[in-house]
Amino acid sequence: MSFADATLRKRLTMVEKRIGFVETRMNNDNELANAMFTTLQQNYEELNNTVLHLKEQMCPKIEFVEKKREHTNKKEIVETVKHSHMLVSLGIKSEKKWTRDQVENLTIQFSKETGRVNRQLSDFTDQMNLQNSLLTKKYSEFKSELIGMNKDIKSDLQLMVTDIDNQIQVKLRQMNEAIIQNKKLMESQTHLINAQQAELEALKKEQVEVKHNLKSILICPEGWKMILENCYMYIQEKKTLSKARANCELVGGYLADIESQEENSLIIDKLGINGKSWIGYSDEEEEKQWVSFKTGRTASFTNFRKGQPDSGTLQNCVIVGYDSPMMYWNDWPCSYNESSICKKF
């Protein structure tokens, strides 16, 4: 991890902690506001209950007076009118005084409760304003910090982009230098290959000239026929492959290895091949790798009949003349007795 990546991760962690702190403070302020609102609601309910209680105390006295009036007959009213008037007057005065006292007390209590509620509302408002001010301040600080972090992040990213661009430029220069070196090396190798090719062509030309010169002085012994630059002998006596090889060596040659289509066709035509005859190849060491008995190299030319070779390890030697046309090759068991074609330089 690079220094810039570590710095960015550290700043992101600080931002996450700040956000968590602000969320916690906001949750605590919301809980305090809810508690104050609940207290205010409870005080209002207590005040309402006090008013209801005062009303309940006054109602029985009024009901007593009304019932007494309803159940008193006219005669009793007339006789006791003066006494009742006095009692009523006294009762009314007493009730008025009691009611006034209750109303005054209720007014005082209401005023006290109203003042207390107003103070609590004022305190709550002050606290809310304070919290709002603190939150506004925290928000401004947080916003400023985010802006600063954004600038730092942009600066770090710019540095990273510049660093990466520089690294890419260095890599490109190194690649270009390597390409130029490889190109020079390839040009050197090409010049060397061209020189070797020219040398090889000169050697081939010299080889043709030597062969041509030899051909002009070469006389094949009796019983041999010259085909191209070599002498060939067709031995019709049938022998196994090993005996046919030995017989070719006995007459001064070797079992023929055929190296081109032209040589193949001329041998069949000039020697008058009319039956199965051994030639000098075998795949005994590695299946379908036909190796010359003379050179020990894999054949550069083959002329197998369609469907041949076909018998795996059972037929490791090669014949021509299995059937017409005689020029095609077949793989063949080495222990069979067949005619043979000998060759010598």
Rank of each mutant, 00 (worst) to 15 (best):
N34S: 15
L121N: 06
Y322W: 10
K143Y: 14
K137Q: 10
K151H: 14
K97G: 11
A198T: 05
D323Y: 11
Q236W: 11
D310Y: 12
V251H: 07
S324Y: 10
D101K: 15
K344E: 00
F110E: 02
E76P: 04
S300V: 05
N166Q: 05
R245H: 07
Q131M: 06
K96G: 07
T162K: 07
G20C: 04
K288L: 11
E145H: 09
N166K: 06
T114E: 06
M1L: 12
Q289E: 15
E285Q: 14
F3P: 06
K343N: 04
T72P: 03
E286Y: 14
H53F: 14
E237D: 13
N182V: 04
N247E: 12
L250C: 04
R18K: 10
S122E: 13
Q261I: 05
N182G: 03
S140R: 06
L8M: 08
P60K: 02
S260T: 03
E113D: 14
Q169P: 02
N129G: 04
L157A: 12
M149S: 15
L40M: 10
S242H: 10
L54H: 14
M160H: 10
N49E: 08
M233E: 07
L218S: 09
D163N: 15
I153T: 09
S188I: 03
E66V: 12
W329S: 00
T24I: 01
W329V: 00
T39E: 15
L172A: 13
K17H: 12
I279D: 01
L47R: 07
I319M: 01
K93C: 09
N182L: 11
G312T: 02
D152L: 11
I147A: 07
L214F: 14
K205M: 12
L8E: 04
Y44K: 06
N30P: 01
R173W: 12
C231A: 06
K270H: 01
Y234R: 02
K238E: 08
K276C: 03
Y336M: 05
N27Q: 10
I179N: 09
L135N: 10
R305Q: 10
W329A: 00
I168Y: 10
S277F: 00
V291T: 08
R18I: 02
P60M: 02
Q127P: 01
N73I: 03
E222V: 02
C220W: 01
K238L: 07
L218E: 13
S89G: 12
G91D: 06
Y281L: 11
S144A: 13
I19C: 03
K288V: 09
E45R: 09
Q189I: 09
R9T: 05
Q207F: 11
Y232Q: 00
Q120I: 08
T136E: 09
Q169D: 10
A4C: 07
W290L: 05
H53Q: 13
L192N: 05
L135V: 03
S155G: 11
S339A: 11
V15A: 09
N48R: 12
K137M: 05
K171R: 13
Q109S: 14
I235D: 12
K97H: 12
W278R: 00
L200W: 10
L130A: 04
I92L: 12
N73G: 13
L87R: 14
I153P: 03
I258R: 00
K171W: 15
L106N: 07
T295P: 02
L40F: 08
S324P: 04
G253N: 01
